[in-house]
């Protein structure tokens, strides 16, 4: 797994756990709003990394060969 994909999965897990907590266990409106502010970027990044296109590099970590 590439480090990019790994970071996406980790942030998606953090986002899902965070949203689950604020939806099921929070009873303070301010806390829900601040929780949303905290965990939305993790979800946005996680979803974005899942949509990240497959690399055009022949091997991970190598830049594509562009000719001599």
């Amino acid at each position: 797994m590439t480090p990019e994909k790994k970071s996406g999965i980790i942030s998606l897990i953090i986002g899902i756990i965070g949203f689950t907590y604020i939806i099921f266990y929070s009873n303070n409106v301010l806390l829900i709003y601040l929780g949303t502010a905290l965990f939305t970027p993790f979800m946005v990044y996680g979803i974005g990394m899942m949509l990240n296109p497959k690399t055009k590099r022949r091997e991970e970590g190598l830049i594509p060969f562009r000719g001599w």
Partner: peptide, 28 residues
């Protein structure tokens, strides 16, 4: 939707977290 790769010189997880922190700060 663009392909990204983390630069070899980047200090992770700070490199990724800082971009997320920008949104956290302004949404708050």
């Amino acid at each position: 939707l663009k392909e990204i790769s983390i630069p070899i010189t980047a200090g992770n997880p700070l490199y990724i977290f800082m971009a997320l922190m920008g949104i956290i700060v302004w949404l708050t």
